[in-house]
Simulated assay, not measured.
Amino acid sequence: MLEVEARWLRARLQELGDAELTPLLNLGSSDLQFRTVVQPWIDREVFAPLRGRGAAIVHSDLKALPGVDIAADALSEAGRARLRAVGARAILCCNMLEHVTDRAALAAGLSALVPAGGLLVVTVPFSYPYHPDPIDTYYRPDPKDMSRELFPELRLVRAEVVDGPSYGPELLRRPWLLVRDVRKLAGLRDSPSGTAGSRLRWLFRPYRVSCAVLRRE
């Protein structure tokens, strides 16, 4: 998650009343170290303010790791049953849709978890390099198109493409990454994105993220 993306999420969540936010289900949460050490802005911008408001937060991921409350596969019936039991009023699904082969099935499962009056907040890269985890289908949609195609049962409340930094400043701070990038180019030729996925293409242009807030009437 980009830091600007985390700040966007914080702003959107601050616009909501306490009753709309709890329990909140965070799908594809990764573990506590990732949220607090590797990308500390995730906890600082998104979850610390929610905890300060007294919101109940349930983190879910595929793997049972520290900081993961529910280890579940959102694409399986058993996994969806465990997630439904949370009774979430709000659901976060950040940077997951590009990492699954059947995103329509994942989207349908997500939509089914949203109760009447409930919210779904989705982010997905709009302009970003190839980043397998463990795969990257190179799904890079406009947020309005994504909402219309994947979540037709939900009303789009807000759609925005958020601009982040470019790769240039990071490369200036860590110039040795250039060696890694050049070495990866050969491997990327065989990836779904081809050499178009190289971070060097974002040397001067910004990373961009599609962000959407949806509600079930």
Results as ranks from 00 to 15, higher is better:
P49V: 02
T22E: 05
S111C: 14
D69C: 12
L110Q: 11
I91R: 13
G52W: 00
D61I: 05
A81M: 03
A56R: 15
V38M: 09
G54Y: 13
A55Q: 06
K63S: 12
V38L: 10
R103M: 02
G28W: 15
R89L: 08
R84E: 14
P23E: 00
A55M: 03
L106G: 08
L24S: 10
T101R: 15
G109K: 05
L83A: 11
L21F: 01
G87D: 01
D43Q: 14
R53E: 00
A112F: 02
L62E: 03
A55V: 13
A88W: 02
P49H: 04
I91S: 14
L25T: 03
A48H: 15
D61K: 12
S29P: 11
F47T: 03
A78P: 00
L97N: 02
A85P: 03
V46P: 05
G28T: 10
P23Q: 04
G52N: 07
V68C: 11
G52Q: 13
R44A: 14
Q39T: 08
T36F: 06
L25E: 00
I42N: 04
D43H: 10
R53H: 00
A64P: 01
A71S: 11
M96S: 08
S111V: 14
L24F: 09
V68W: 02
R44F: 05
R51L: 05
G52P: 06
L110Y: 15
D73Q: 09
V58Q: 05
L24I: 03
Q39P: 00
E45T: 08
S111T: 15
E98T: 14
C93R: 08
V68P: 02
P49K: 09
A104N: 07
T36A: 06
A74P: 02
G54A: 06
V114L: 00
T101H: 15
S30R: 15
A55T: 07
A85L: 02
L50A: 04
C93M: 10
R44T: 15
R53V: 02
L106I: 14
G67Q: 05
A104L: 12
A104P: 04
T22Y: 05
L32R: 15
V68H: 03
A88L: 06
V38E: 09
T36Q: 15
P115L: 14
L25A: 09
P23F: 05
E45H: 07
D69M: 03
R51D: 03
E77K: 11
R82N: 06
D61Q: 00
S60V: 01
C93P: 09
A56Y: 07
A104W: 11
A48D: 10
A104Y: 12
R89F: 02
H99F: 06
D69N: 01
A112H: 04
L97V: 07
V68G: 03
R44C: 06
M96F: 09
A81E: 13
R84G: 03
G87Y: 07
L21K: 09
A56G: 01
T22M: 10
Q39H: 12
A72K: 07
D102W: 12
L113E: 05
A88Y: 14
M96N: 13
L110H: 10
A19N: 13
S60Y: 09
N95D: 11
L113M: 10
D61L: 05
L27G: 05
T36Y: 04
Q39A: 08
V86Y: 08
A74T: 00
R89S: 03
G79N: 06
N26P: 04
C93A: 15
F34S: 00
